[in-house]
Structures are given as C-alpha cells and as structure tokens.
Write a protein that binds this DNA or RNA. Structure first.
Length: 253
DNA sequence: AACACATGCAACCGCATCTGC
DNA sequence: GGCAGATGCGGTTGCATGTGT
C-alpha cells in the first residue's frame, strides 16, 4: 500500500507557471498570508497543488530574493559550508539571505561540482576540501590524533553560541561515513588548481589558513565562519523585513 | 539556416520530519 | 505512544536556451 499522494492531482496544472498564476499566488499571500499550503491553491483560484505553490513562492516569488549569478565570495562560502554540512542545502541556504536551497543546489550541481571534478576532487565526499584544508595546514602536525582533532572541532562547533537557526554546523563523527575521510595527494594543491580554474584570486583566505597549526586552525575557522556569516545580512534581519509585509505568518523554517 | 548537443534552471517526486490530536 | 496530515528537504527530471558544427 503506497503513500497517499500529497493532493488530488487530477485536473491540476503542471509545468511552468504563467505570469497570471504568479500574480494570483502573490496577491493571495500578500493579502492573506500563509495559513495552510493545501488550502492556498483553492483559495487563490489556482489549479496547482499546495506543494507546487509553496515551492513557487519560496523559490521565485518571495520578496527579498536575490537573483542572478553567485559571486566568488558566495561560491567560496558555499564550498566551505558544503564541506561541513554536506548536501544539506536548506542549512547552507540559511547562510545566504535571498538565496534558495534550490538555487544553491543547482549551482553546486552545475558549476561547483564540475570545477571540483576538474580538480580531481570527489564532490560526493563533502568533507574532502575541509579535510584537505586541514591537512595542508598541518603538514608539521601529521602525527596528531585525528580522532581527537575531530572531537575538538566538533566541540568547537557545537559550543558555538548557535547559528541563526540553532543548527548543528558539524555532523557528528558517527554520521560521517568512513569513505569521507580525505585522502590527500600532496603532490597537488587543489586550492591552487581551483583558483586557476576559477580565475579567482580571492581564495587567499583558504591559503592563509593553511599556515597555522591545528589549534590555530580551529580559531581561524571560527573567525572566518563568523565573519563570513556576519558579512551578509542575517536571515533574522530578513525575517524582520518580511514581518512588515506579512505580519500574520512567520518564517521559522 | 538548420540541426545536434550541452547547459542551467524551474519544477516535480517521494521520503523524512514535524505537529497536533 | 501512535496515528494522520502538513510541511520540509534533497534528488532527479524535463524543458528552454545557448553554443558549436
């Protein structure tokens, strides 16, 4: 016995949204807020399922969305976050006000993944870059106990006063498949390669962090992380803006 | 100009998780 | 605690557009 479909799909429209549909959905939400996505299409006069409406709103119609290509800085931050979080796109997206998880996921799959592949890095091993980064920064410290350093990192991250959504930044060690452990070919510097491919010179933050010891690495990471997030508008401030538009609902994903 | 192929993005699908009863 | 409905999430697909021949 299969799962019940999220909605009765008979007679529902699919595919690309028309401008008229966008207007209907936008007007409805602006006037009424979001109470129940299931009811939205019916109340808004749309022949779509609630899921589809939600997706359209979140990914395209929601005010404050930043459209256009990703900047180098954003791309670097995506790579860094992905190295910590893996394919948890919504978590990654929460660090980019105005960007959607879908957008970031698409960007990763179409651009970044390709670049990493060219570098010989396996994008399916999301912690590889982070690990590479650590290894390159710790050539003088190769004997250090990796498990304890992992633990140290986990503690460091978990004791973080909490990010804007109270999420855990670093997957627990047990959640990391063994295969994710990095195997770094020290004859190649992936960061150099990435820089060459991207034609960007602002990977310096990665290189700079390679010059510190293990203990310092954690500190640098922490600082970078905080600076990186703070350098963007916080999601909370974005929520406040939306509160003015939509006092009747909350974005509390 | 016409066609084939590649690319990027919007949208869909189905499972996971949350929430209220 | 168990269940059902609603929502969230990530993987995947399909199509529009761009590019090369």
């Amino acid at each position: 016995m299969g799962r019940q479909p999220c909605c009765d799909k008979v007679g529902l429209k699919r595919g690309q949204w028309t401008i008229e549909e966008d207007h209907k959905l936008t007007n409805f939400i602006l006037n009424n807020g979001i109470i129940c996505w299931r009811k939205v299409p019916k109340l808004a006069g749309l022949l779509r399922c609630g899921k589809s409406c939600r997706l359209r709103w979140i990914n395209y119609l929601r005010p404050g969305l930043k459209r256009g290509s990703f900047t180098d800085s954003e791309e670097h931050q995506i790579i860094q976050l992905h190295s910590r979080l893996g394919n948890r796109w919504s978590k990654i997206a929460s660090h980019f006000p105005g960007r959607t998880d879908n957008e970031i996921k698409n960007h990763w799959n179409t651009r970044i993944k390709k670049k990493l592949k060219q570098l010989g890095l396996d994008s399916q091993k999301p912690f590889e870059i982070e690990k590479s980064r650590k290894n390159y920064g710790n050539k003088n410290n190769m004997n250090s106990d990796s498990s304890s350093s992992n633990k140290q990192e986990a503690i460091s991250l978990e004791s973080r006063p909490e990010d804007d959504h109270g999420m855990k930044i670093c997957p627990k060690k047990a959640e990391r498949p063994e295969e994710m452990k990095a195997t770094v070919d020290e004859t190649n510097d992936p960061l150099n390669n990435y820089q060459m491919l991207s034609g960007s010179s602002d990977l310096d933050w990665l290189k700079e962090s390679n010059n510190v010891s293990m203990g310092e690495t954690a500190c640098v990471e922490e600082e970078y992380w905080v600076d990186g997030v703070d350098s963007f508008l916080s999601w909370d401030s974005f929520v406040h803006v939306e509160d003015k538009f939509f006092p009747s609902w909350e974005i509390g994903n």
